[in-house]
Each structure stands twice: as C-alpha cells, then as structure tokens.
Write a protein that binds this DNA or RNA. Structure first.
Length: 150
DNA sequence: GCCAACGTTGGC
DNA sequence: GCCAACGTTGGC
C-alpha cells in the first residue's frame, strides 16, 4: 500500500471538482521525477492526500485513491492542449498519468501553516524548503500523524 | 559536460 | 508582487 500527496491549484482543479467528477485522469504532469514515480511506484488502491496549493490557505483538504495503472497522458498529443508536447511520440509516450478517485473531504482542511508546527512532520516533504514536486510519496507515519490532526 | 539565462512553482 | 529554489534550454 502506497501513500501519496498530490497538489492541485483549487482555482484550476479543486477537491470539490474531484468530488463532482468522482474519478478523473490526473493529466498535465510534466516533471520527470513525478513521471518516474507514477510509472514505477504508483499502484491501484494507493491512498492520496489531496493538497490545495497556490491559494489563500494552502492546505491538505481531502483524501483520494489511485484508480488506474499508469497510462499515456492523452493531452501530450493534443495540439490544442496547454499540455501538448510536440516531442512526444505516440509509440513512445513521454508523459503518464493515473486516474484519481475521490474518497472524501477532511472534516476541516489542515493548513500548511499548521503542519509546519509539528516536529513529527519535520521530514515531511511538503514542509521542506524548495519542495516543488506536484506528486510525492508520504511515509506511513506521516500519513497517520496528519490524519490524526483531523 | 559546463554554466548562464530563463521559466515555473508556490509560499508569503 | 516578490523572491527562493529548482528544472530546462541552449551556446560553447
């Protein structure tokens, strides 16, 4: 069982949007580190912390689930998409995604500022400087501690 | 392969 | 809007 955090800008795609959709292809990942983790480490059933970034109150806001194996992100082949990658080949797709399924909102969002107050989370990737990955694994101990704050 | 310039992310 | 921290690009 894997545990992940996935960031999204709520102005672009929020936890409420995912709730409405139920399940959605998580497209637009264009970072090789993130791509490699999707490709090599994501499994159906893995659990996901849904995080709102670049907004008034950056916070963990809900729970989701990996709902598919990795597959080629179709937006890389779509010239009208902002995620279009003209260098990616159909027979050798550069970018992958997984489907993400809504589980639930947290009872209350847990703001980044609150996460930073806990020494238990000192090694949590989200609170580290220079953290820019939009997807990264979460240690089980961190996962349990964060949900214990709910 | 090095490195400067540039672009992006994301908190504040 | 500012800035730090990266990642990417391209000249050499």
């Amino acid at each position: 069982m894997g545990y992940w955090l996935m960031k999204s800008e709520p102005d672009t795609y929020s936890i409420d949007d995912l709730k409405r959709a139920g399940c959605e292809p998580w497209d637009g990942i264009r970072n090789y580190q993130a791509r490699n983790m999707i490709r090599d480490d994501m499994r159906v059933g893995d659990k996901v912390l849904f995080y709102h970034s670049s907004c008034k109150v950056p916070a963990v806001v809900g729970l989701a689930r990996v709902a598919s194996k990795p597959y080629a992100d179709p937006t890389q082949f779509d010239p009208s998409s902002k995620y279009h990658d003209p260098k990616s080949q159909q027979d050798d797709p550069r970018w992958l995604l997984v489907d993400v399924e809504y589980k639930r909102h947290l009872q209350q969002p847990i703001p980044l500022s609150e996460l930073k107050e806990h020494s238990e989370l000192a090694d949590f990737q989200l609170v580290k400087r220079g953290n820019r990955l939009s997807i990264f694994p979460v240690q089980k101990a961190h996962w349990d501690f964060i949900l214990g704050l709910e």
